Simulated assay, not measured.
Amino acid sequence: MGSNPFHPLPLGFVFRSRSKEEKAASTDKVSLTDSTQPRDPQAPKGRPTPKRSESQTQRRSVANTSMTRKDASKRQRDERRVQMDKQRQALAGRGNERDLPARDRGPVRKYARDYVDARFNVAEFFLPLAVVILVLSVVQVPALQNIALLLWLVVIVLILVDSFWNVFRLRKQLAERFPGESTKGAVAYALMRSLQMRRLRLPKPLVKRGERP
């Protein structure tokens, strides 16, 4: 028989040839990618290295963001400083009443302060009297010690009587001047103020003793 020029090639030879071609093509693609765009060591795996212009833009945006945050923080500090200065001026009686702390704002609290500041309160003299009584009790003289004990009792009774009278009068005045409005906490606020010496009260007194609030 004569030789057949169209004799088919073995299957193994065909598959080996295709696999070699695919490997060569993939190797060429990898080499082209590596040569044209090398990966940055700090870039995440599987992602191309950003261009230099993009990196500079990102760094510039980060810098601008940090400066903006810094400016905002400085602005907040300045505003807080201005607000505290306004509050000090208001407490000293030289500023606007709306800059007072929340516990001192409002017409009800202002009237409670004026009511206390316009009269003599026994409780405001407690600290000076306490010093005098303490000195008398230290002296080793029985008569003076007895006087000190008696003074303690008299001062405590006077403070209690005066405080009850203030509570009664102030509640009545608040009900007449502010009908339908909430006066919660105003009486306790006034009592705490009456325990302080006049020159140490904050906000500073705005009425004179004996003056009608």
Rank of each mutant, 00 (worst) to 15 (best):
F13Y: 07
D117C: 04
D71G: 01
L160W: 07
L160K: 07
V139A: 10
G12F: 00
R80A: 10
P38W: 00
G210N: 03
W152R: 10
P203N: 11
G180E: 14
P41T: 05
Y111H: 06
Q42H: 06
D28I: 13
Q196I: 11
A118G: 10
R52Q: 11
I159A: 06
F164S: 11
A72S: 10
V155L: 03
L136K: 12
P107Y: 05
A190F: 00
D28H: 05
P5V: 05
L191Q: 12
K45Y: 06
G93L: 09
W165F: 10
I133F: 02
K45E: 07
L91Q: 03
K184G: 08
M84Q: 14
E211Y: 07
E176R: 06
Y189W: 03
V30E: 15
K45S: 15
P8V: 02
V62P: 01
R113E: 04
I147R: 03
A72P: 00
T36K: 13
Y115A: 15
R18N: 13
Q196G: 03
E124A: 02
G106N: 02
A43D: 10
A123W: 02
L174A: 00
G93P: 04
R80W: 03
P8K: 02
D71A: 12
L136C: 13
G93V: 09
T68C: 04
L134K: 13
G106Y: 00
S3H: 13
T183D: 14
R94H: 05
G46N: 13
R212N: 09
D78F: 03
V30G: 12
S35F: 03
N96H: 09
G2L: 11
S73Y: 01
Y189K: 01
L150Q: 10
T36G: 13
A102F: 14
L134H: 13
W165R: 12
A43P: 00
E97A: 12
L91I: 00
S19E: 15
E21H: 11
R199M: 09
L32E: 06
N146S: 11
D34S: 09
S35E: 12
Q42F: 04
A24P: 01
R209G: 15
G180T: 15
R69Q: 14
V132I: 03
Q42M: 07
E22G: 05
Q145W: 01
F6W: 09
Q83N: 13
H7W: 04
D99C: 01
L191A: 10
K204Q: 12
Q87D: 13
E181R: 07
G180F: 04
G12R: 03
F120Y: 09
D34K: 14
A25H: 03
M67G: 08
Q76N: 14
Q76K: 13
T27Q: 09
R109S: 04
R60E: 09
V132M: 05
N64V: 05
D28R: 10
K74H: 15
A63D: 11
G210V: 03
E211S: 12
T33G: 15
R177N: 15
L149C: 08
Q173L: 09
T27L: 06
R113W: 00
V30R: 13
P48I: 11
K70C: 15
